[in-house]
Structure formats: C-alpha cells, structure tokens
C-alpha cells in the first residue's frame, strides 16, 4: 500500500498527460457531433496525420519544429476539410447513420494512406523541448508542460469561439436545431465544414504533441480513448470532454497501478479500463457526467 502511495505522484502526472490528449481528441468528436450529429470514426486518424506530418516536416524536410508543428496542424485541418467536402457533404441528404458508416471507411482509407507513405513501426517526432525534470515522487518530461499548456489554450480558445464569435454561435445553433438555424440564415453546410476542420486541427495537435513516436497504427487507440472520454463527459458537451478526458486518463493509470502494486494482480490489459468505464457510464448515466441529454438522438 505504501508503495502504491509512493508511486501516486507519477501515476497522476502520467494520467494528466494522457488525459490532455484524450481531451483534445474528445473535443474533436464533440464539435463534429454537435454541428452535424455525426460520430466521426476517423477522428483518431487525424492524430495519426498530425504525428506523421510533423515527422515528415521536422525530420525528413528538416524544418524547425515550431514551424513543422504549425504546418502539420494546418495540413491535417485541410484533410479534415477535404473529407467533409468530398464525403460528408454529398451525403447530407442520406441521413446521419450513412455518414457515420462513411467515416469508418474514411478511417480505413486514412490508415492505409499512412501505411503507404510511412510503413515502419514508428517514427520519432522531435520533442519541442527535450529533457525531463524531477518532481518529488515523479519524473516528468518537459513535453508534458507543452501538452498541458496546449490543452488549456485550446479549451480557452474554444470557449471564446463558441460564446463570443458569430461562427461559434452559429455552430451551437446548428446543434440545437438545424432546421431553425437554416431558417434564420445560418449556412448549415458551411458549419459542418468548419466543424471538420476544427476537429481535424485538434486531433492533429494531439497526435504531434502526444508521444515522441508516431505510426500509421496509432489512430485506433486515440480514437477509442477520445470517444470514451467524450461519452464519459457527455457526448456533444464540448467541455464535458475536459472532465471525461481527465477522469479516463487518471483512472487508466491508478486502477492498474493499484491492482499490480497492492493486490499483486499483473494486468497487461489496461485498455479494459476504458471499456469498463464506457459500459458503466452508458448503463448508469447515458447522458455522461456533464451530459446534456443529447444521447437519445443517436
């Protein structure tokens, strides 16, 4: 038990870092869901693009890291926009379910694309600031500060976007009632485009900052964890993602740590934490922790 408490600072730091990534991905799920009603299963692949583009620009092309990171996020956002125009827009009259299934197709396509250009098991994306620092009971990489800082910045910016800008308010209006939004002159299809661009940018940022390693296969895990976080926080509740991401990130470190160190059960299947949490939340609080009761729409 003592060992467990001694490890706790490290668990909390690790959980925070992962939680921040889940927040970024989960916010992407939520933005698309609120403005279109679509659950975008290619969200995890945006993170893959973010990581692989950052590698290509910073390592293969030799650009300075800040520039490479910005360009990688922009390129990923462009892919998000292109996906919306090429695939989602033509399906706008076909119903939400059709579009959701189409996103599964996009996810497979993106992953294959990643594998064609970056076939190796992993690529090292340079850290913004290499090195680590030690806190009492925990060693944390400097990248951790960037992860937390970027997440806080994104959350604050999104808050202002949704509450203070015309485009943000229009997107929220779409989520409340699409038909009414059309009637008051909001261009719903343009909002759908914006939401994909924004979600792709967030996913891309999570991918390039996440870990020093990117690979074509990383999208699935990012997608599953981000989706879980968004459901736990309340699907469609943009800031529920913050709670959902942190809860998932922390529980994922604390529960296996407790099982291993205190009970001596060796558990290699940490992924089960996310699955169990998802099932428990869906059974007992389907609207999510901060839910808006939007789940019935699905």
């Amino acid at each position: 038990m003592l060992d467990f408490f001694r490890n706790c600072p490290q668990y909390l730091a690790n959980g925070m870092a992962n939680g921040c990534l889940y927040i970024l991905v989960a916010m992407g799920f939520n933005i698309i869901y609120t403005s279109t009603g679509i659950i975008n299963f290619a969200q995890g692949e945006f993170s893959m693009f973010g990581g692989l583009f950052a590698y290509a620009l910073a390592v293969s092309a030799g650009l300075p890291i800040p520039l490479a990171a910005v360009l990688a996020v922009l390129a990923t956002a462009a892919i998000g926009g292109a996906m919306e125009r090429v695939m989602i827009y033509p399906l706008r009259r076909a119903g939400v379910l059709t579009a959701i299934i189409a996103t599964i197709g996009a996810s497979i396509f993106f992953k294959s694309l990643g594998r064609v250009f970056w076939p190796s098991e992993a690529y090292k994306v340079p850290e913004f600031t290499p090195g680590t620092f030690r806190l009492p009971g925990a060693t944390v990489s400097r990248q951790f500060l960037w992860v937390v800082g970027l997440t806080v910045t994104c959350v604050v910016l999104l808050y202002f976007f949704f509450n203070r800008t015309k485009a943000g308010r229009a997107m929220r209006a779409c989520s409340v009632n699409r038909q009414a939004a059309t009637l008051v002159g909001i261009n719903v299809s343009r909002m759908s485009l914006y939401s994909f661009i924004l979600a792709a940018a967030l996913g891309g940022a999570a991918g390039l900052i996440s870990s020093p390693y990117a690979s074509y296969g990383m999208g699935l895990e990012m997608g599953v964890k981000g989706f879980t976080a968004s459901v736990v926080g309340g699907l469609g509740n943009t800031f529920g993602a913050v709670v959902g991401g942190l809860v998932l990130g922390l529980l994922e470190e604390l529960i296996p740590g407790f099982l291993t160190v205190v009970l001596g059960v060796s558990t290699g299947y940490k992924g089960a934490v996310a699955a169990v949490l998802l099932i428990v939340v869906l059974l007992f609080r389907p609207q999510g922790l901060l839910g808006r009761g939007m789940v019935e729409k699905v």
Partner: peptide, 16 residues
C-alpha cells in the same frame, strides 16, 4: 514483476 503494455501506448502509459 511482469507487466504487459500495448504497442501504441504513449510514453506516459508505458512509464506507469
């Protein structure tokens, strides 16, 4: 001690 991790785990997860 014996622990399994997943191929695409992040650095922090593996640290745990």
């Amino acid at each position: 001690a014996s622990e399994g991790y997943q191929t695409n785990d992040t650095e922090e997860t593996i640290d745990t």
